[in-house]
Amino acid sequence: MTITHHPDIANLMCCAAGSQPEAFAAVIASHLSLCKSCCCEVRRMQQIGVALFDKLEPAKMAGPAPVVAMRAGEAETAPQKDETTPAHHPCCGMTAGGVPGPLVPLVGESLDTVDWHWLAPGVWVHTVPLSKGCCGELRLIKVAPGKKIPEHTHEGQELTLILRGSYTDALGTYRQGDVADLDEAAVHSPVACSKMGCICLMANEGKLEFTGTLARILQPLLNR
């Protein structure tokens, strides 16, 4: 996989800081699982957090070291190898079914078994549930070969990771592993690759707004 389009530096920093809205965090995490160079970048960015942490004014602890809990856990846990390390580790690649590691708990092992909803001729969506109260939207979009993702604008940022196939819009061609990182001003209508079509993971900060007539009729379908 040759990745040519990476997320914006500021978005990677937000990931290192752990301050990203959930939908974006999912896209970035998925990209990191496929992109070593962004992984290295995020590791560097982590040093900023460490430096700032180092300088924090200490807050007085009310209690002493948790020696009782330490002792209690000693028999089976302390200090030794543990199993609490997250199962999905950055840079772990994707499943045979085309799902990046971090996304497996959310959508399952394969893009072929996702529960797709018809949106428009040649376009299907699957909304990925996020935590309660979290703003933004995350969805998988599947586009048949040569079909268009309906023209749309968005409030806020849009981050799209290509999982299978490719698409082309005015900004270029995006292939597997690539991220299109668009700000709110962008209006675009990408066309899926004529052979393989395209499946992508798309995160939006605000609501998507489709601009064509047909799309406006279809808008209600998107939010189900």
Partner: peptide, 8 residues
């Protein structure tokens, strides 16, 4: 959050 990224 369900989709956050633990760093190594």
């Amino acid at each position: 959050e369900v989709a956050w990224q633990p760093l190594p």
